[in-house]
Design a protein around this nucleic acid. Structure first.
Lengths: 340, 340
DNA sequence: GGGTGGATTGACATCGGTGTCACAACCTGG
DNA sequence: CCAGGTTGTGACACCGATGTCAATCCACCC
């Protein structure tokens, strides 16, 4: 390994001077700097992270702890977003996947401490409350896609209520008046929030919110798993005397089954029925025919915002540190909704 | 920060003895060990990774570099698999997402060097050849989901040929004789390999491979993007005089459109048409009605195998170091294929 | 000529662990 | 009772960087 001393010897200067060049200390003569830089290049010198970290007693690494961000495809974009932000901060990412096991979590908090990480992001697969307990970790923690019920850490979450509002309002603006809803499991926070959004949009336009037009697309089995029953649920909706002209779906998977149910009744999308998804999983939205209009979960932005917030908490960048940041869920228009 | 010395002072022993306890050195009296352990617990002492790494001049971190493992959902399982293996090795993971940009890659190879990572896994989104050039990195590198055309690094890749063989053979065993294929873009290595698999299965059973029954489900646009045209492609197949009784799909997205095309012709799956997917993306396979039989891409296993291989390269575990490991693609039976 | 001050540079201690080697205490057998 | 071995422990240097502070050089001014 090439060390600072090696470079110094080669350049005929002291190690400290090389250190100054490496760290862009302005108090170095231009000629010296150039000579040393040249030698650094030539010798492929890379400063030893461990030594630097030890001396400075903090590292340029941020820990990211997740329950199982891979389970829902695309929530992994939280990781990508975080990575993108960290790159700009010239930081790197130590990642820990705990499968939600508190024992593993504790272990990894220790690992983070051992690595003296500059802070941590705790990301979850679903938007939900978490209780971190009192992790053995003294640096800043930011929650991503989850929030602390006890408000003990600041959090970055998707604006599900706004997303629900967007879904409903877009359809209302297209002229729809009878709008069915095939929702996610009612225990999910997202379902509650989006429901609030629907109602706001309905109320704004003087529409009556008819509870019988909202049916669950997933049901919970006794064993805790979930069954997707959107096909039958939407069939029920579409067979009603006064059937809806549009259906809002709790996610894009539900939309797949709504398409199938409509097809089985000889209805075509969007001529006979407008369909609106949620999540904007391109693997589905681009695959359905016609391509599905959906409201996106801004995972990438959530990850990015989380690391930005972390930098603020650590005082490395300017700006306020709000206890919670809501990231908007943008509407992505494609071809499954039409004016009536 | 609590240091080794603090613990030593508190316990009335030398720092070296504490170090021995931390590292499970057997040459410590049981009573001493217990006393020291107790104090370590009480003081929440965590050994400083940086200091240890500096002294030992290697770290317990493995670098994982990816182009954009998040793009295809589930290929992120490579990361989960790697993590799972590393956990057993008591290692952690430094992750770098380069978006395939060689400049970023070079930057991150340096970061890996600076961190003295024990080795690196280079993972890609699609199964493809890569040319790493000569990265400025002296530790072991294992390729995951990609391979070196110049055989300069060892690799772990899915057995696409075997997967194609499984798809075809399963349908043949169910009695199908006219089998259509809606494939991926022909430029993909996966397409070529699976094609070989189909042919092997056909030949084994004395079936004639009819090229007119194979049509592409994706076409490449002039701008390099891909359009999913499986709907029309499969319509063409199904409208033929002697239409196929089963369709093999290049991936699960294609299967979605095959289902739709079949529905539009009044054909139902699997009664009138058996459909076989590839990739086993549960978000699709569990969503389609009936649920889709598919061949899984073993991303998790690929990630795990890659870090196991890395440990072998580094001599930390026993076993041979083959230049390439093929991970089988298992068939996952659901309800979209039936006996005829 | 001597003093002043800014610009550069270097000597040295230090961060928190671990390797090396010496040393004390305790056995064990002749 | 002592040589020789085993066991347990500690003193000390060192890994590779950086902070502190002092030294040196040079231009400039009175």
């Amino acid at each position: 390994m090439v060390t600072l001393k090696d470079v110094a010897r080669e350049a005929g200067v002291s190690p400290k001077t090389v250190s100054r060049v490496v760290n862009d200390d302005p108090a170095v003569n231009v000629k010296t700097r150039e000579a040393v830089s040249e030698i650094i290049q030539r010798m492929h010198y890379v400063p030893d992270h461990a030594a630097r970290m030890m001396r400075m007693s903090h590292s340029s690494v941020v820990g990211v702890m997740t329950d199982a961000v891979a389970t829902t495809p695309y929530s992994v974009d939280i990781i990508r977003g975080a990575q993108s932000g960290l790159r700009e901060q010239a930081r790197t990412m130590l990642i820990a996947n705990t499968d939600g096991d508190p024992k593993q979590e504790n272990e990894y908090w220790k690992v983070f401490r051992a690595h003296k990480v500059a802070g941590a992001v705790y990301a979850t697969t679903y938007h939900r409350p978490v209780d971190l307990g009192a992790p053995d970790f003294e640096r800043g923690i930011v929650l991503a896609n989850c929030y602390s019920a006890r408000r003990s850490h600041c959090s970055v979450v998707p604006d599900d209520e706004g997303g629900g509002y967007m879904q409903a309002r877009h359809l209302i603006e297209l002229g729809h008046r009878r709008i069915g809803i095939v929702s996610l499991s009612p225990v999910l926070r997202a379902t509650v929030l989006r429901g609030a959004g629907y109602r706001t949009a309905f109320a704004e336009s003087g529409l009556f919110y008819d509870p019988s037009l909202e049916v669950p697309g997933f049901v919970t089995r006794p064993d805790g798993g979930e069954d997707l029953v959107a096909y039958d649920a939407s069939l029920g909706l579409l067979r009603r005397a006064e059937s809806p002209t549009a259906i809002i779906c709790g996610n894009d998977q539900i939309a797949v089954q709504v398409y199938a149910a409509a097809a089985s009744l000889g209805l075509s999308v969007p001529e006979d029925l407008s369909v609106m998804g949620f999540d904007d999983m391109t693997i589905i939205t681009h695959t359905l025919k016609p391509m599905l209009t959906s409201v996106a979960l801004p995972y990438f932005e959530i990850g990015r915002t989380a690391v930005d917030l972390l930098a603020r908490i650590n005082g490395e960048s300017e700006g306020p540190v709000p206890p919670q940041v809501l990231v908007p869920c943008p509407l992505v228009e494609r071809h499954s909704c039409r004016q009536i």
